[in-house]
């Protein structure tokens, strides 16, 4: 069973590596959105430091959401998805593999890039670490929840905009705890509680989302 999981992950990673520019586009989108905020709000260091966590997190939400379109659409277009639905392995497992691959391509670069952006906003060292940990716990949950939305809007007209309406409200808890963790570290309090809650959200998403996304895919492929 885990063989299938590994195969799916490796396959999707190989495919992603063939279209490296797609990966970079998501990352640059993230960087550009974050860089726009100081231009809009003004360069006061105090103000920027106060809003850094929220800005980085909202940008991460948007970047993840934009990359969701690629999660299933290629496989849907060339008919691979129908084969995957009919495969003897449970579909939720295959979905999990695809989501893990998606996160490594779309989520992990954001986690690695975030401290640099945090530095631009004048975050302290502790806050930068908190930002990274919160993104490390949060972005996989974003990919998992987003997979349901991506599955539901597969092949639907206006799917790209639609997925944002469906998915962004469901992202709110991750946003709140993620940005909250950084803020509470900046304020001199620990963020263990936030991380625990984010971990709980991640575990719940791991248990439920592949199943929901598989149901969504079955509906879309049928």
């Amino acid at each position: 069973m885990f063989g299938a999981l590994k195969t799916v992950i490796l396959r999707d990673l190989t495919l992603a590596m063939r279209h490296r520019s797609d990966v970079l586009t998501t990352l640059f989108f993230f960087i550009i959105v974050v860089s726009l905020f100081p231009l809009g709000v003004g360069p006061e260091p105090e103000q920027l430091r106060a809003m850094a966590a929220g800005v980085v997190w909202v940008a991460a939400l948007l970047a993840t959401m934009l990359s969701l379109g690629r999660l299933f659409s290629d496989d849907y277009a060339d008919g691979t998805l129908e084969q995957l639905v009919l495969a003897p392995q449970p579909l939720s497992l295959i979905v999990l593999g695809k989501v893990i691959a998606h996160w490594m391509v779309a989520g992990l670069p954001l986690v690695i890039m975030a401290p640099l952006l945090g530095l631009q906003f004048g975050l302290s060292g502790d806050a930068l670490i908190a930002l990274m940990i919160s993104l490390l716990l949060g972005t996989p949950a974003l990919s998992l929840i987003g997979a349901i939305g991506a599955g539901l809007t597969l092949g639907v007209r206006g799917g790209g905009v639609l997925v944002s309406i469906l998915v962004l409200p469901l992202y709110i808890p991750v946003l709140i705890f993620g940005a909250g963790a950084v803020e509470s570290v900046s304020a001199g309090m620990g963020a263990e509680g936030h991380f625990a809650l984010m971990g709980a959200i991640l575990i719940m998403a791991l248990l439920l989302a592949p199943w929901g996304a598989a149901a969504a895919l079955r509906i879309s492929v049928e």
Partner: peptide
């Protein structure tokens, strides 16, 4: 979101089931 998904899918049966999944997730 529920209404948007419903109206975006032309096939009525698929629309009903897709938006049903969304309502449950919600």
């Amino acid at each position: 979101g529920f209404m948007a998904l419903n109206s975006a899918i032309d096939d009525a049966r698929r629309a009903a089931r897709a938006s049903g999944v969304l309502a449950i997730v919600g």
